[in-house]
């Protein structure tokens, strides 16, 4: 099988220099690989390190050791500009909260990842409009900044943005949380379509039924926590 995301021997410890140099060891020797078309769920109790692992895979946290490869680029040793290129072209991330510049309209926010890879403006806006329609964001909101939207609407804009460009690798942090049943179905369908086109997906789903419906296997992050792996 074609491996897209390959995490090997990754460990993560936070050192808090201004709090008595406290050391918080979170993950130890994580090994994980995700193939094209596969969706895996990270599981484990709160504080086990699910979000930490996801942020490591996105290059948002710095791994102390090991390798995190997205196709053939190792994010642990890559230069900033290479990580940015991987994120632009290959690695999508739907975080729990939408972070946008104030004043930028929702439609532009969703089209942005496509514009960044050189899709012409009209095509990017059309794709964005389709996604917003699919996710039931009323058309009269498209020209407004999502900073003023409700929590659920913001999350759907965030999801639309994450699915605008067909990333080969996709990270989803609680994509169905706080969605109504109709929109939850839409998101699960988006995940299934992404798998069908060959995306490798890593997700955190507290919604057990959603997890069962889209994920091929689960990885218990508790197995990598320092207390359990020592």
């Amino acid at each position: 099988m074609n491996t897209i995301i390959q995490v090997s021997n990754v460990s993560k410890t936070f050192t808090l220099h201004n709090q008595g140099s406290a050391e918080i060891a979170v993950l130890n020797n994580v090994d994980l690989s995700v193939s094209a078309g596969e969706c895996i769920a990270l599981t484990g109790p709160s504080g086990a390190g699910k979000s930490t692992l996801m942020r490591l895979i996105y290059g948002n946290y710095k791994a102390q050791s090991g390798a995190i490869k997205i196709n053939d680029v190792d994010l642990v040793s890559a230069e900033a500009r290479d990580i940015i290129r991987v994120r632009r072209e290959s690695l999508g991330y739907v975080s729990q909260f939408l972070r946008v510049l104030p004043r930028v309209p929702a439609l532009t926010v969703v089209a942005e990842p496509l514009r960044a890879v050189g899709v012409p403006e009209d095509d990017a806006l059309e794709r964005a409009a389709n996604l917003l329609t699919e996710l039931n964001i009323p058309e009269n909101l498209w020209s407004l900044s999502p900073t003023t939207f409700s929590g659920g609407e913001q999350q759907r804009v965030n999801i639309a943005r994450g699915f605008a460009h067909p990333y080969p690798a996709l990270l989803l942090d609680e994509p169905t949380a706080s969605l109504d049943p109709v929109n939850r179905e839409v998101v699960l369908q988006l995940i299934r379509s992404a798998k069908a086109r060959g995306a490798a997906i890593v997700g955190i789903f507290h919604d057990a039924e959603a997890r069962a419906r889209v994920c091929d296997r689960t990885v218990d992050v508790d197995n990598f926590t320092v207390a359990n792996s020592a």
Partner: peptide
Amino acid sequence: GLTDQVLDDPQHA
């Protein structure tokens, strides 16, 4: 380093 990495996971005191 990468902006979000430096801000979200700063290494230096």
